[in-house]
């Protein structure tokens, strides 16, 4: 169960990160340059997709009855974390996405 929970929270964070970086203002905040339109759309799409994956993982962890409640909580809290990280350590906020492949490896081979 803990792997599913971790994954749910992780993908919620990455989803929020994608949506956030798909916004002109926040992309600039991290990379100090404007965001090409295609990338913006791609980031947002990936963000929504990650949120969907997060929902599936939360449902795996808790079942469909209460999973969506946990999903909302995970999105809220990871959004909060992102908002607090962005102004202080913007690169770290983005870099946290690197945990996803690690999680995937552990999930596949662990």
């Amino acid at each position: 169960m803990m792997m599913w929970v971790t994954g749910g929270v992780l993908f919620a964070y990455v989803g929020m990160l994608g949506l956030c970086q798909g916004l002109e203002r926040h992309y600039k905040q991290v990379w100090q340059r404007p965001c090409p339109r295609a990338l913006r759309v791609g980031l947002r799409g990936a963000g929504w997709l990650a949120l969907l994956v997060s929902l599936l993982l939360c449902a795996q962890a808790w079942g469909w009855a209460i999973g969506p409640v946990a999903w909302l909580g995970a999105m809220s809290l990871s959004g909060m974390l992102l908002v607090m990280l962005l102004p202080y350590w913007p690169r770290l906020a983005v870099g946290l996405a690197a945990v996803v492949p690690v999680w995937g490896m552990v999930q596949l081979f662990g």
């Binding site: 929020m16 949506l19 956030c20 809220s76 959004g79 909060m80 908002v83 607090m84 102004p87």
Partner: peptide, 24 residues
């Protein structure tokens, strides 16, 4: 939605109040 501007006095307090309220 994702805005928090620290070290800006009243602005920061309002940003935080908004972000914590909206996101949750």
């Amino acid at each position: 939605f994702f805005t928090f501007r620290p070290n800006k006095g009243q602005r920061s307090w309002l940003d935080f109040h908004n972000a914590s309220a909206v996101l949750l």
